[in-house]
Each structure stands twice: as structure tokens, then as C-alpha cells.
Design a protein around this nucleic acid. Sequence first.
DNA 1: TGTTGTTACTTTAAAAAATAAAGTAACTGG
DNA 2: CCAGTTACTTTATTTTTTAAAGTAACAACA
Lengths: 127, 127
Amino acid sequence: MPENCDFKRSPCPIANVLDLIGDRWSLVILRDLFLGKRRYGDFTRSPEKIPTNLLAERLKRLQREGLIDKVAYQQQPPRYEYHLTAKGRDTRPILEAMARWGNRYIPGTFVPPDDFWQQPDPTGGEG
Amino acid sequence: MPENCDFKRSPCPIANVLDLIGDRWSLVILRDLFLGKRRYGDFTRSPEKIPTNLLAERLKRLQREGLIDKVAYQQQPPRYEYHLTAKGRDTRPILEAMARWGNRYIPGTFVPPDDFWQQPDPTGGEG
DNA sequence: TGTTGTTACTTTAAAAAATAAAGTAACTGG
DNA sequence: CCAGTTACTTTATTTTTTAAAGTAACAACA
């Protein structure tokens, strides 16, 4: 057992994933990153209309937990882009499983096209 | 487009799944059902220690949304068991994907044994 | 030089949800 | 009769979410 075994609720992997990204917004942000969105404004313009304080907080948490990287794309004024790390990219099976279930059981939800998840990472952001 | 297109946030299947079961407790309850737990007391005794008012509310929602059935197992006093429906059982890929990600990235989480998800439904609860 | 606009946040106040704890109803078993 | 169990409901407090406004640093234009 490593030192970082201070589980919030239990050693169950599902409960722990929920404590990390099991809220109303984190997976929506990850979805947007898979779609190729990178900047703060991109996320705010998504149809779900995330409140800006929550966006800022969630981006901080995702970064702190190593699912995304924050990389500067200009200096004056300092501006940043957000990129998925390998850890973040590996949430794809979770998003895919959710999308499939949603498509099957929630009528009217859009079916992601085949290239939905194929997001290249041109700047190669890796933690 | 069917009539029931009053999406909470957007037509995205992921956002809609989150609005349905994307909270701290719903997937923990579904996990327990996959583990074979059926009664109110079973759920309260899980290591995550769900508050009882939230358990009651989540069971109601899962039932209302057709993921679980509530079936009487005695009359005096009336007592019920909760069972996964096909719709509920089909959340398994979501739980499996979460468990896999958790096992890979959250050290110390237990690895579900091969028979973890193999839960037979002896009473055959179907909505 | 002043005004408007953009980007990326932070702050504030109100509403909603989660939590902990106690309470209730209908029994069972001794 | 009394303690215990099951399946909840109710209440009060804390935390989180939400909506909205505010801020800082610039750029573009007139």
C-alpha cells in the first residue's frame, strides 16, 4: 500500500473516480477537450453554459490531479491553453460508455460521429 | 425528434447521462446492485455510508427513470427489494470503464474480481 | 487619448443540494 | 412489556452550485 491511501469514502475504484470527476461538469470539460477545445472561452461557449467560477475551479482540479496540462500560448498578456494528458485521455472509455448508454436510453441525444473522439494533439501537451 | 426533448442542458448524451446519474451516489448504488445487494439496509451498510435521505431519494429517482424495480418480498409489514432492470444493467460498461481507470490511476483501489459483475437475477425483476 | 471590445478569470450573494442526526411506523422476538 | 430491526422521513446545518457582476490586461479603432 502506498502512502496516498487516504480514500475519501472507500477503496472502491468507482467511488474514488466519482470523488475525482463525478460531478456535473468535469466530464463535460473533458468531452470538450476531446472535441479539440483548448481555451477558457471555448469551454464557456459550449451549449451547457458552465458558470465561469466552476470552470476555473474544475480546470484547476483537473490540472492538480494530472488529467490536463496548462500551457502558455502567449506572454503579453499571459494566456494559456488546456490539453489532455495521457491520464486525461484515458478517460475516453468512460465517456464512450456514457455516450452509448445515453444514445440508447435518452431519446433525441445526438450520436457522436466516428471521428468524434479522434482528437490529435498538435502541440503535444504531456505532463 | 420525439416529444421528450426537454434536455436539461444540451442534446449531448454525456451531459444527459450526467444529469441522470452523474452525482456522488447513484453509481455507488448501481454498483451495489451489481454486487447482489437488494435491500435498503444493504445499501446503508456499504463502506461509503450514504445518508439515508439521499439513499431513499436516489432509489426513487432510479426507479422513476426505469433503471431499477421495487418489488415486495413480504406483506406484513410491506417490505421491498430493489432490482436492476435491463436499462440499469446496461450501465455496466460505464462502471467497468470507471473501475479500470480508477485501478490504473488511483493507487490502492481494489481490483474487482472476475466474477464481480456476474450478478444473476434470481427473482427476475424487469420493468 | 478616449472608448469599446476581448480574454480569462475572481468575487459576491442567493438558491439548491448534501450531510448528520434524530424521529417515526410497523412490526418481531423474548 | 420492552428492546431491537427495517425502512424510511424530517429537521437543521454545512457545502456546493448558480447567476451575475466585477477586475486586470491588453488590442482595435476613431
